[in-house]
Amino acid sequence: MKPFDYSRADDAGSAVAAVMARPDAAFLAGGTNLVDHMKLGVAAPELLVDVTGLPLDRVEELPDGGLRIGATVRNSDLAAHPLVRRRLPVLSQALLAGASGQLRNAATTAGNLLQRTRCGYFQDVTTPCNKREPGSGCAAIGGWNRYHAVLGASEHCVAVHPSDMAVALRVLDAVVTVLGEDGERRVPVGEFHRLPGEAPEADTVLRHGELVTAVEVPPLPAGTRSGYRKVRDRASYAFALVSVAAAVETDGDRVREARIAFGGLAHKPWRAERAEEALRGASATDEAFREAAEAELRAARPLPGNGFKIPMARNTLAALLRELTTEERR
């Protein structure tokens, strides 16, 4: 590991200034992904600015009933927060579906959003990877790609975003607040993460030195049911092959409005707008759920190793919607 300087930030503005001043600097929070990358040689910052002492560790209620979640709130605390459990079950469930108890105790809201793909080639510095080393090629396209993208990939990168939390935030239409040298800006979470295109090295639209300070989540309309379902290679503590977050409003036996996002399928949490459109006003039946999934997944382009993700995504979406609409009628 490359030697590095360490400093603790006293306030958010000076943290931003410290990282902005040096291209080789990085923010440090929970460290569960960054420390690993430094061991692997995937990242080699020469200055770490520790932001865990900043007063960004609170969950506050907004006047409209939404929540403002501080950037350094630990994943375990957020999942257990009474307002999150009561009002935003999809968020609590997604957080609890990720990582392990130990990691959730360390990992933060902002760190979870900013974690990087677990593509094995990205993490192995002996192999080509356009995300780690732009222009070097992609070893996953002709290699082991069971975990990789079926939607929105490019010829340069087929990695998927590993977060569960971000998939829930996507259906909740959360907004990320970001502090830069010129003050704060607000980025809808749907625009926060990028598709790989020609520049897979950039996971997000953040510029160097910009600090995520909070995530704001508007309230769900009354009567909306939300949930998260994840499919993986073992029962716990594994990344998603496929996951689905959904928030559904029903009117009798019909779906009034459904918000749906997939995890494990793309370089960013994938909002399934075509499926949502297909469900608007549809009867809450298995057939309708599957048709909605088909409408979205028609655009899927599987790799040799991950064609199974398409029926898995369809089945997982149908199962979650069945669960959410059945509860509603109870």
């Binding site: 360490y6 440090l28 929970g30 460290g31 569960t32 420390v35 690993d36 061991k39 770490l48 520790d50 865990t52 375990s76 392990s100 108890g101 130990q102 990691l103 105790n105 360390a106």
Partner: peptide, 27 residues
């Protein structure tokens, strides 16, 4: 494993369980 995957380095830090391999002592 030294990569946060096995849990054998778990300690209580301020009373909370964490993996001690994925955090720098200096912090």
């Amino acid at each position: 494993c030294d990569h946060g995957q096995c849990g054998s380095c778990t300690v209580l830090l301020g009373g909370r369980r964490v993996v001690s391999c994925l955090t720098f002592a200096v912090a």
